[in-house]
Design a protein around this nucleic acid. Structure first.
Length: 650
DNA sequence: GTTGGGAGAATTTTT
DNA sequence: TTCTCCCAAC
């Protein structure tokens, strides 16, 4: 079959086409919200493949697995299945792949374990307990974790981060440094990496090992990066190195939408891209296909005042629609009621529930609305703060699988043992030491030694597990990890769930579903385990949504709504102190980021946008705060929005 | 050392 | 609401 050739100018507007069909050399695409950024990237991939580039020589870096998957699928429909061989995934994913091949160069085993956020915080907590005497005054593990993470992602010494945070932190910086050292030391001792280490070590690999660097430089002829504005210094450097030889680097992003600086993202990466790649071509995408012009006017007006940005103006392509509304409301309850009534009205006018979203700054802002929706029986889905894969019961099951597969995973081993009756962290640790810091689940003798080390009350339960390990290795259950999980649940875990939780049934369901997911995974149990730490909520959520085609209203934080769109969008709690959040306001930079976040919220809407500003907020204790409408509303020029009041008054 | 009850706190969280 | 921490009782 002759290769099919796409007429790119037919599918793309001139700017998109210019970006997609550009020749070799660095390319920066400044793509404002809703201007077909993904489409351009997809066609770029298709173009390169049709032009004869082997797909495996293309590297497509994204920020979520979902984005990678979506783009891959779309590119396949344009250029055919051959596209499927290209390298795509998140930075963490790609670094993980590098490290699975070369981690031994850095003194790690190639089957190193990954600490997810929870594991990492738990380990930090242990370090605090073991090294800090006066813990009353010492910051909590979350604070320490974010300081350490900040330093890693900004590629700067922890001391600098601490200095900047000095006035908020009461603790002695040297003590925090001590904890951080201990944390690093313990990670090294057990040969594990946390999320940040994947980036740090991925980069080290490329920097310190010339042959590895040359190997990957030689593998990739083109490096394409999505959401470039949210890269941190490490990620930008990884891109620069990988594209260092071929010089074919395409960065796509929108500095207006950089909303992760608190995680180390630095929008200067995108601002300074032309400095680092002086001969780069810059293409601006400004024609917005998503939103009604009235919505874009609000978006343009709200972002205008931000300093330090590439000047871009969203240009509408759609015909006139309706002006966005600003609702002035009495309190959270009236807000919830009003939003619900509006949702109903839209629904009566033929709008599906899944075409509507409610966005907010922080999860807890949605409580009243959730309660109202639940009471009224209006179906909704909500993106929660914790990932499915971070929930205790899912992690328990995964710990079991890890122990089956890996005899060095101390964290998984101890977690599994803690599930036994009357056995806590202390004993689990002691047993691990006693076994010589290893436990081979396939080894009969070791299983017996473990039995002997247990207190009598836990032995019965352990026997069940020991039998299961035996089966695991005899029947080669590794090939179908889901089956192993099912049996684990049957012979042991179900009982535990029902003892430990009120909603044991619900959790068991999660686990049955997890088993299916594991079976679907190509690499068997081991392949699944190597990636599971990098899977997130959104990946899971997405599967569920697309499979169920559920007709539900979507409730989400603005952060998690990035990249998505809905015909109807409500932004609730658009008041000073909540959006912008008073917690994050301090310096001008913070105000700018909150404004970008607001911009992201506004630009999610296609046809209708409602901003809600209640005048007061009730606290748990029955107290009342008065709130002023958000500065982002106040700043809007007159006439851009329609002023309205709560439906309770009609 | 483990477990369970009660008090108290909660910004965002691509990996 | 849900998660986390701390203390007291096994």
């Amino acid at each position: 079959m002759p290769p099919r050739m796409t007429d790119f100018s037919e599918h793309l507007n001139p700017e998109q086409c210019e970006a997609a069909t550009a020749g070799d050399g660095p390319l920066l695409v400044l793509a404002a919200a809703g201007t077909g950024k993904t489409r351009t990237l997809v066609y770029r991939v298709a173009y390169l493949v049709e032009r004869g580039e082997p797909p495996q020589s293309l590297l497509l870096l994204t920020f979520t697995n979902r984005a990678a998957r979506e783009m891959l699928e779309r590119a396949k429909t344009v250029a055919g299945d051959a596209v499927g061989n290209l390298w795509s995934g998140t930075f963490h994913h790609v670094c993980n792949r590098f490290l699975r091949k070369f981690a031994d160069r850095l003194g790690y085993r190639r089957d190193f374990a990954i600490l997810d956020r929870d594991d990492s915080r738990a380990l930090i907590d242990r370090c605090i307990k073991d090294s800090v005497l006066n813990r009353k005054e010492f910051p909590k593990k979350d604070v320490i974790a974010s300081l350490i993470g900040n330093a890693a992602n900004r590629a700067c010494p922890l001391e600098d981060v601490l200095e900047k945070a000095a006035d908020v932190l009461k603790a002695d910086p040297s003590e925090i440094v001590k904890v951080a050292r201990l944390y690093a030391q313990r990670k090294a001792e057990s040969g594990v990496m946390d999320f940040d280490d994947l980036l740090v070590n991925g980069l080290r690999l490329l920097k310190e090992h010339e042959d590895v660097r040359d190997f990957y430089r030689g593998s990739f002829r083109h490096v394409l990066v999505d959401e470039y504005q949210d890269t941190n210094l490490l990620q930008a450097e990884i891109v620069d190195i990988l594209a260092g030889a071929c010089r074919n680097v395409m960065a796509v992003g929108d500095d207006f939408q950089c909303i992760y600086s608190w995680r180390g993202a630095d929008f200067r990466n995108i601002m300074e891209f032309p400095k680092r790649w002086p001969d780069c071509r810059i293409v601006r995408l400004e024609r917005n296909y998503r939103s009604a012009p009235e919505i874009l006017e609000v978006a343009n007006a709200c972002i205008k005042g931000n300093p330090e940005q590439f000047q871009k103006t969203l240009r509408p392509t759609r015909p006139a629609g309706v002006k966005p509304s600003v609702y002035t409301l009495r309190n959270g309850d009236e807000q919830a009621m009003t939003v619900m009534n509006l949702i109903r009205t839209y629904q009566e006018n033929g709008c599906r529930l899944r075409d509507m979203a409610v966005l907010y700054r922080a999860h807890f802002h949605s409580i009243e609305l959730q309660m109202q929706l639940a009471r009224a029986g209006l179906p909704y889905v909500i993106t929660s703060g914790i990932s499915v894969f971070e929930q205790a019961h899912v992690k328990d099951v995964i710990a079991f699988l890890k122990v089956c597969e890996n005899s060095n995973d101390r964290i998984a081993f101890e977690r599994l043992l803690c599930l036994l009756d009357g056995l806590g962290p202390r004993s689990a640790e002691a047993i691990w030491e006693k076994l010589g810091k290893t436990f081979d689940s396939g080894d009969n003798e070791q299983r017996d030694r473990l039995t002997a080390a247990l207190r009598v009350s836990a032995r019965g339960q352990w026997q069940e597990l020991a039998r299961l390990f035996q089966q695991y290795h005899d029947e080669n259950l590794a090939a179908k990890g889901g089956e192993a999980v099912e049996r684990f649940c049957d012979v042991f875990y179900r009982d535990y769930l029902n003892r430990a939780y009120d909603n044991g049934d619900k959790r068991e369901e999660d686990i049955r579903e997890l088993a299916l997911q594991i079976n679907k995974h190509d690499g068997g149990a081991n392949g699944f385990l190597q990636e599971v730490a990098l899977l997130t909520n959104i990946d899971h959520e997405y599967d569920r949504m697309s499979r169920g085609q559920a007709d539900k209203v979507y409730l989400s934080t603005v952060h998690q709504a990035k990249g998505l769109e809905w015909p109807v969008v409500f932004v609730i709690w658009a008041v000073e102190g909540m959006f912008p959040s008073s917690r994050s306001l301090g310096e001008a930079e913070d105000d700018a980021e909150e404004r970008r976040l607001f911009y992201v919220a506004v630009t999610r809407a296609k046809d209708a946008l409602a901003l809600c500003a209640p005048g007061m907020r009730c606290t748990r204790e029955g107290g009342v705060y008065y709130c002023k409408p958000s500065r982002f509303i106040k700043e809007l020029p007159r006439g851009l929005v329609k002023e309205r009041y709560g439906s309770a008054r009609f």
